[in-house]
């Protein structure tokens, strides 16, 4: 690792102002950032640790909306009675990110700010129609995830919490990359009133929705409705782990499994 300065502010305001100078990075759970820095692939001159900020903590249900503080660890979300009751698919998703030790550190805010194309949380945010709240504004998930490792976040903008409207039904089906255990393909489906969402992670350069599947499921929310619907392989990732064709096929399989489980 290259040298850097370390700050641990106790307020969002201080954190934001610390980020104004130089090449600072926010440190949430660090489960992606620190390995990247260890391999000398990132060289921030300062890390601003968000763990000391009370306002980024907490999980609560307000009416029909689940509020999850940005610094909530995956393990906290997975084991939260509130989440398990309100959106069991979200708790299950959090409980299958990385491994137990990564889940003890990794946070929802860190995960979505990083927007790894194979991460799970972006699929949940997009698949549930979440709203990402920052110290500056509210951003709908549809607008938040812009490209591979790119989001709508601006310099110094800090995610404070994520708001999930409660679905009537939802599920996440994930096919693990055998080596890294990230999602080779993950599909999050939800149904809330007439709003049906199908969000896919792992398969493309950035999490995306599948309109054809959503239309079909809006008519009848059943795995069978997806028969004959496929995503175009042309837009998908192809690497040593899986060809675009295989990923396209898995999107169909995982979508059907998610719908069946929802």
């Amino acid at each position: 690792m290259y040298e850097f300065a370390y700050h641990r502010p106790n307020s969002i305001r201080k954190a934001s102002s610390l980020s104004a100078s130089g090449e600072a990075k926010f440190l949430a759970g660090g489960q992606t950032l620190l390995p990247t820095m260890k391999q000398r692939l990132a060289s921030p001159d300062a890390l601003i640790d968000l763990a000391g900020i009370e306002a980024l903590q907490g999980i609560e249900l307000k009416g029909r909306t689940l509020h999850i503080g940005a610094m909530s660890r995956h393990a906290d979300v997975a084991s939260s009675a509130v989440v398990r009751e309100a959106i069991p698919a979200l708790a299950a998703l959090a409980g299958d990110i990385g491994d137990p030790h990564v889940r003890a550190m990794g946070t929802i805010g860190g995960s979505i700010a990083n927007n790894d194309p194979a991460a799970d949380y972006p699929a949940a945010c997009l698949g549930l129609g979440a709203t990402i709240v920052t110290n500056k504004r509210r951003i709908s998930a549809d607008d938040f995830f812009t490209d591979m490792f790119e989001t709508a976040l601006e310099e110094g903008e800090i995610i404070t919490k994520v708001l999930f409207p409660l679905p009537r039904r939802s599920a996440y089906a994930k096919f693990d990359n055998p080596a890294s255990r990230y999602a080779l393909v993950g599909v999050f489906v939800s149904k809330r009133g007439r709003d049906v969402r199908v969000a896919v992670t792992g398969a493309g350069p950035c999490v995306f929705r599948v309109a054809a599947m959503e239309d079909a499921l809006s008519k009848r929310f059943a795995a069978k409705s997806l028969d004959g619907i496929s995503v175009a392989a042309g837009d998908l990732n192809s690497d040593i782990h899986a060809s675009a064709d295989y990923r396209a096929h898995l999107v169909g399989v995982m979508a059907r499994r998610a719908v069946a489980a929802a």
Partner: peptide, 26 residues
Amino acid sequence: DTSQCGACVVHVNGRAIKACTSLAVQ
């Protein structure tokens, strides 16, 4: 060096974490 093997697991404040993916100052 990719936070996968778990040879470094310790308990911090009662939780198991990977000591290779965490800074002492934290």
